[in-house]
Design a protein around this nucleic acid. Structure first.
Length: 415
DNA sequence: CTTCCACCGGAAGTACCGGTAA
DNA sequence: TTACCGGTACTTCCGGTGGAAG
C-alpha cells in the first residue's frame, strides 16, 4: 500500500509529462479545426451565401440541416471566423453571433444571449422578452453594421416553446433603421421545418444547405487529421482510428461521437500510464462515455423523476419491460415507504415521456385490444449504470437496502 | 361490426421561486 | 413597496384511440 501523497505525486507526474497527447484540446467539441475533410462543398455554399456582407449588404437567411455530428456547427463557425477576419482586414463591420440553444432553450434565454453577445448586460429573469428585444434593437442601431445571428440546434427551442421568437427575429430588419441582421438556423431534424409557421419557414429558408452523414471512411479521414495534431506520433495503435470510425458510423456517422471516443480513449491510456492507445481503451471509453452521460442525466432529474426511473428499474428487472400502470403502482409503493407525497398519474406519464426523450428509457405505445392501450417501457441505457447512480444519488438511507436489493436483483441488503 | 379497456397526451391553470423596475 | 417577469414542477380536466374480445 502506497502512501496517499505518493499516489498523488505519481498522478501529477504522469500528467505533466504526457506521453500520449501533444495537444488534447484539438479533440474537444468546441475546437474549430483549419481543415474540415469532406465538407468543401458546404463551406463553399455557406461562404457564397454570406459573402455579400463584405460589401455591407445583408446576406440571405439560411437554414442548415443534418444529423448530429455531420459538421454543421464546425463548418458554420469556421466560415464565420474566416469572414470576420476578412472583414476586420477590410475595416467592415460584421458581427457574428453564435448561440447554441440546446441548454438555453427558452425564448427569454435566447434573446438574453443575443443581448449579451452584443454587449448588453441582462438579468437571468425579471424582464419580459419584449423588453429585452427592445433593448437589443436600440443597441443594434447604435452600432450600425451587419449582424449574423446563428441559432444552433433550434429544434430545442421550437419543440417546447413554438416559433414566436423566430418569427420576431425574421422580421427584426423592419424595426431596424441602420443595422441589418441575417439569420442562420441550424437543426438536427428535418421534420422541424414543417412544424414552423409558413412565414418563418420561407424567410429562414431563403437558402438551404443539407449536411449528409459521414461514412466510416470519411470519419477515418477526419480522425486522422485531428489525431496528427492531438497525439504524439506512433502512440495510436493502427486499429484505434478505424474502430472509433466504425463505432461512430453505426451511430449515423456522428463525427462528434467519434472524436469523443478517440479523446476519452487517449485519456484512459494516459490515466493508466500506458504508452500506447489500444482498441481495449476504445472499448472501455465507449462504456465510460455512456456511464457519464447516464449519471449526468439522472443527477439533474427532479426527485419524482428519479423515483419513477427507480420504479421502472424495479419492475423491468428480470423480464426487461414494464407498462405505465405497473410503473405507477411500484412508484406509489416507493413513495409511501418514504413518506413522501405522490404525484398524479398524469405527471408520471409525463415523466415517462421525458425519460424517453432523454434516451434513458425506451417507451413505445401499443394497444393490447380489450386490455387497453399503454406504453411498453424498457431501460435504454446499461441497467447496472442506472442502478448505481440511482442508489448513490437518492441516498435515502431508510430504503437504500430495499432499493439495492430491488433494483440490482443481487438479492441482498447491505444491512 | 361494435364495445370498451387502460391508458395517451393536449391545454389551461396553480404555486412557488428568484428576479427587475419605478 | 407593488406590480410584474420567466422557469419549473405539478394538477385538473378531458377528449381521444388501437385493436382483442364479444
Amino acid at each position: 500500500m502506497k502512501a496517499a501523497s505518493d499516489i498523488i505525486d505519481e498522478i501529477f507526474e504522469n500528467f505533466e509529462q504526457s506521453r500520449i497527447f501533444r495537444d488534447r484540446e484539438k479533440l474537444l467539441p468546441d475546437y474549430i479545426p483549419e481543415v474540415l475533410p469532406h465538407r468543401e462543398n458546404e463551406i463553399k455554399r455557406l461562404a457564397m451565401i454570406l459573402a455579400p456582407s463584405l460589401r455591407g449588404e445583408k446576406p440571405n437567411n439560411a437554414f442548415i440541416y443534418g444529423l448530429t455530428g455531420t459538421g454543421k456547427t464546425a463548418v458554420t463557425r469556421f466560415v464565420l471566423k474566416k469572414l470576420s477576419e476578412k472583414a476586420g482586414r477590410k475595416g467592415i463591420k460584421i458581427t457574428p453571433i453564435y448561440i447554441n440553444i440546446r441548454r438555453r432553450d427558452t425564448p427569454y434565454r435566447v434573446i438574453a444571449d443575443i443581448a449579451e453577445a452584443i454587449g448588453l448586460r441582462v438579468p437571468f429573469t425579471g424582464l419580459s422578452v419584449g423588453e429585452v428585444y427592445k433593448r437589443v434593437l436600440t443597441k443594434l442601431d447604435r452600432r450600425p453594421g451587419v449582424y449574423i445571428i446563428v441559432l444552433d440546434e433550434i429544434d430545442f427551442l421550437v419543440r417546447r416553446h413554438g416559433d414566436d421568437l423566430l418569427y420576431k427575429l425574421t422580421r427584426i430588419n423592419e424595426d431596424l433603421k441602420r443595422s441589418r441582421v441575417s439569420l442562420i438556423g441550424i437543426t438536427n431534424s428535418t421534420t422541424l421545418i414543417d412544424s414552423l409557421d409558413p412565414r418563418v419557414k420561407s424567410s429562414l429558408g431563403e437558402e438551404e444547405i443539407v449536411f449528409p452523414p459521414y461514412n466510416a471512411e470519411q470519419l477515418k479521414d477526419i480522425l486522422e487529421e485531428r489525431a496528427r495534431e492531438a497525439f504524439y506520433d506512433g502512440v495510436l495503435d493502427p486499429d484505434v482510428i478505424p474502430l472509433c470510425a466504425a463505432l461512430a458510423a453505426r451511430e449515423h456517422g456522428d463525427a462528434r461521437r467519434a472524436l469523443d471516443l478517440l479523446r476519452v480513449s487517449g485519456e484512459l491510456a494516459e490515466r493508466k500510464g500506458d504508452r500506447r492507445v489500444t482498441r481495449t481503451h476504445v472499448l472501455q471509453a465507449r462504456i465510460e462515455i455512456e456511464r457519464d452521460r447516464v449519471a449526468e442525466v439522472i443527477k439533474t432529474l427532479p426527485l419524482h423523476g428519479k423515483l419513477v426511473l427507480a420504479s421502472i428499474a424495479i419492475v423491468s428487472r428480470g423480464r426487461g419491460k414494464a407498462t405505465t400502470g405497473e410503473v405507477y403502482d411500484e412508484y406509489r409503493k416507493l413513495v409511501k415507504m418514504l413518506g413522501l407525497e405522490e404525484v398524479t398519474f398524469r405527471r408520471v406519464s409525463g415523466i415517462i415521456a421525458e425519460l424517453d426523450m432523454l434516451g434513458i428509457i425506451r417507451a413505445r405505445t401499443i394497444s393490447r385490444g380489450r386490455y387497453g392501450k399503454t406504453r411498453i417501457i424498457e431501460l435504454a441505457a446499461d441497467p447496472e449504470a442506472i442502478n448505481g447512480v440511482l442508489v448513490k444519488d437518492l441516498a435515502l438511507e431508510e430504503i437504500s437496502g430495499y432499493l439495492e436489493a430491488g433494483i440490482s436483483g443481487k438479492g441482498h441488503s447491505l444491512r
